[in-house]
């Protein structure tokens, strides 16, 4: 088996609401996979199933061939699958370095080595100047990079990013994209949920598109943006039909 992560026929139901319906896809080692879709498509729900925050109603999730479906989140983290949160969650009363230390203690038991590794992760995410500041006092852009630094400090085999660029200014988006590119260059596998297509297209090797809880497309970014179903999901039926006619008349 070559996939590092396999999502197999996952469904997630909250009461009468089907948030995810029979979703399957694979993530190959060393690649960046983007999970996109319009608002309410079920991206975050699926993400939470993978990260062990929800137990899916049906289907399974395999990490390195091992079934991790419904495993508590701290054990998923210990398997090497680290996540960030869409709504940032700094450990407010702790400094930036202390935040990262919590993660570093998972990969390095000894305090000295944990500290050294935490400092390294802090630099990777451009947070040096905030080292001893309370993490609650930072801007949203810094907090988002702190999310990544902390997850990175756990020494993961794969990183799950939940809307890492949502709500950032254009400068902050650029910084964040730089960080993610750095991580990709180190060979880390990344699954990123994103609402904004522009942010994900230049980084992702593969895109999975969700709409109404179902997978409607999967492929390389260039193909996916031309997919009719994807355009319909994002821009509505009329626009898509217009696009199709436009294409038809030209060919």
């Amino acid at each position: 088996m070559s996939a590092i992560l396999s999502v197999r026929n996952v469904s997630m139901q909250f009461g009468a609401l089907m948030a995810n319906k029979d979703v399957s896809f694979d993530v190959e080692p060393g690649t960046v996979v983007g999970l996109i879709g319009p608002n309410g498509a079920g991206k975050t729900t699926l993400f939470n199933c993978v990260a062990g925050f929800y137990k899916p109603s049906a289907g399974s999730i395999l990490f390195h061939g091992e079934d991790i479906t419904g495993m508590p989140s701290y054990r998923v983290a210990r398997k090497g699958l680290a996540r960030t949160f869409q709504v940032v969650r700094p450990l407010k009363e702790m400094t930036v370095l202390e935040n990262i230390m919590v993660g570093a203690y998972m990969s390095h038991g000894d305090t000295k080595r944990a500290l050294a590794f935490a400092e390294e992760c802090m630099r990777t995410c451009f947070l040096e100047e905030w080292r001893d500041k309370p993490s609650g006092d930072m801007t949203i852009g810094n907090k988002k990079r702190l999310e990544i630094a902390r997850a990175l400090a756990t020494g993961p085999k794969m990183l799950l990013l939940d809307e890492a660029v949502a709500g950032l200014t254009s400068t902050e988006v650029k910084e964040m994209v730089d960080v993610i590119k750095r991580l990709k260059a180190t060979g880390l596998t990344i699954l990123m949920v994103e609402h904004i297509m522009e942010a994900i297209m230049p980084i992702a090797d593969k895109i999975v598109v969700l709409a109404h809880g179902e997978k409607i497309a999967e492929g390389i970014p260039g193909d996916v943006v031309r997919n009719n179903e994807v355009i319909t999901a994002y821009l509505g039926k009329k626009y898509a039909e217009g696009m199709a006619k436009g294409h038809g008349s030209r060919s």
């Binding site: 701290y74 969650r89 450990l91 009363e93 919590v102 998972m106």
Partner: peptide, 16 residues
């Protein structure tokens, strides 16, 4: 302290 500041966050970092 991590649990005090955010239990779910702590769990996401491997804390039981």
């Amino acid at each position: 302290r991590a649990i005090r500041e955010g239990q779910e966050t702590a769990e996401s970092l491997g804390v039981n």
